[in-house]
């Protein structure tokens, strides 16, 4: 192989020395790509040059030829640096592949299904600002009467955030029956998270549980953005806030649990700060803006309400999300079928 490229190299060199035109130089440049592909080290290129030169000009003074031996030594460490660089690129490619696999595993692992039963219409949208989502939505639905939802915003992105989400999911999956009251769920998840996360990492989480038997919605919050409830009878919104510290800050936290009753036409809006803290060129959006969009589409389906809020706010940010965006709607439907 080196003999073959050596021969071609000699021909190109000869041609350039004879004619000295730009085109031949360009050929040389293209030819160097083959060298790289064939993993010919810089010091070997000099060696090839030396051999070729000796054949083109057999009468070159010996001293000039010796200078190439010196140059070859000069190039040795460049060659080592190049090989190191190439091996780093390979490693990086391997890591990238592993991350892609991890992202796929995450997608499968964290898949969630909207509970579907009469009495409550649920819609949601979650969009990451970058490749991996730091917002996490998980629905639980044990029987035909209770639909629960966890909405978490993990500070930090990528692999650590993904691992955290798996932790939350399995923490919740391990709970059953009477243990699934919102304050209990947050308490258990907090204990798991607190033991496992890095100091500067934390998670905010809102947990809501709708019971179709009495149309009650009970909820608790771990440092999460308050939800909103739309009251059809009043035509306005009330904030659903509940006291509770972020997950992962300290082990013993008393989470407050509250409950509201839903009437037909009422709906609950749960969001992350990617929705409430939208920043436009002129500053933060007014908090009344989200409510006014919600009012406009209050008669539509839960999914359509969520989509409309998303589309409008995306437009305001010139179609470029700055933060992960998640909105979930629970809307009480007419009891009569």
């Amino acid at each position: 192989m080196p003999q073959e490229v050596g021969k071609q190299y000699k021909e190109l060199l000869q041609q350039y020395i004879d004619n000295r035109n730009e085109e031949d130089l360009y050929f040389g440049q293209q030819f160097s790509r083959q060298f790289i592909e064939k993993k010919i080290a810089p010091e070997d290129v000099i060696s090839i040059h030396k051999t070729a030169l000796a054949e083109v000009f057999p009468d070159l003074p010996e001293k000039v030829m010796y200078s190439f031996d010196f140059l070859i030594e000069m190039m040795i460490h460049y060659g080592l640096a190049l090989r190191e660089h190439q091996s780093l690129i390979r490693k990086q490619e391997e890591i990238q592949m592993e991350i892609n696999v991890a992202a796929k595993v995450q997608d499968t692992l964290l898949k969630t299904k909207i509970p579907d039963f009469e009495g409550i219409d649920i819609g949601f949208i979650t969009e990451p600002a970058k490749k991996m989502n730091g917002d996490y939505v998980y629905f639980l639905n044990d029987d035909n009467n209770v639909a629960s939802v966890a909405l978490a915003d993990v500070m930090g992105k990528g692999i650590p955030a993904a691992l955290c989400m798996s932790m939350i999911k399995f923490g919740m999956d391990s709970l059953q029956g009477e243990n699934t009251s919102p304050r209990n769920v947050l308490d258990i998840v907090n204990r798991i998270v607190e033991k496992s996360v890095d100091d500067s990492m934390f998670i905010s989480m809102f947990y809501g549980k709708y019971d179709a038997r009495d149309s009650s919605f009970s909820y608790a919050s771990a440092g999460h953005e308050p939800a909103l409830i739309y009251r059809a009878s009043e035509g306005g919104f009330t904030e659903l806030d509940a006291k509770g510290l972020l997950l992962g800050v300290q082990p013993d936290v008393d989470y407050e649990e509250r409950s509201v009753m839903l009437e037909v036409g009422d709906f609950i809006v749960m969001m992350t700060d990617g929705v409430t803290e939208v920043r436009t060129e002129t500053g933060f959006i007014d908090e009344g803006l989200i409510k006014s969009i919600l009012l406009e589409v209050k008669e539509e389906s839960a999914q359509s309400i969520a989509d409309t809020v998303y589309n409008r706010l995306l437009e305001l940010q010139n179609f470029h999300l700055r933060d992960d965006f998640t909105i979930i709607i629970f809307k009480k439907e007419n009891d009569l079928v």
Partner: peptide, 13 residues
């Protein structure tokens, strides 16, 4: 933003 909050939570802990 929340990244900043994370720094203070870490510092506090």
């Amino acid at each position: 933003d929340s990244t900043g909050l994370g720094v203070f939570v870490g510092f506090y802990k």
